[in-house]
């Protein structure tokens, strides 16, 4: 039986992993298999892990302000390495102008700080229905 697998990674150099861990556990409790790769993940690490783990979705949390560097690079590498079909979503402190730019580039959704986990879980459920 197919299980939905989600990669959760913390990009950038900040050391705050509480938020992403809470989301990872909420997704687990919703029945997903979450591969949590931890802090300080570079785009190269994220993409390689996503491909090896054959995930259906990638979630990246960035609080350090590196979002405009990390998300576009992840999307680009995914295309290059044969993972262009994997949708990417994000979370963190990201100004709304940047948020719009990222969504235009192909990031499916950005969740701001303080988003309730139920909202994220519902979004994932709704979205992976189409995968």
């Amino acid at each position: 039986m197919k299980r939905i697998r989600i990669l959760m990674a913390k990009g950038g150099l900040d050391g705050h992993s509480r938020g992403i861990k809470v989301v990872a556990r909420a997704l687990r409790d919703a029945g997903f298999e979450v591969i949590y790769t931890g802090l300080h993940q570079s785009p190269g690490m994220i993409v390689k892990a996503a491909i090896q783990e054959d995930v259906d979705l990638i979630g990246i949390s960035i609080l350090s302000g590196a979002h405009m560097a990390i998300f576009p690079k992840v999307l680009e590498l995914l295309q290059l390495e044969g993972g262009g079909h994997i949708p990417v979503f994000g979370g963190g402190i990201i100004p709304s102008a940047d948020q719009k730019r990222l969504e235009k580039m192909g990031v499916k959704r950005i969740f701001g700080p303080g988003t309730r986990t139920t909202e994220i879980v519902d979004w994932v459920k709704k979205n992976l229905g189409d995968v």
Binding site: F32, E33, V34, Y36, T37, G38
Partner: peptide, 8 residues
């Protein structure tokens, strides 16, 4: 569900 954390 599961959280798979060995890659950390």
């Amino acid at each position: 569900g599961a959280v798979l954390g060995d890659r950390i």
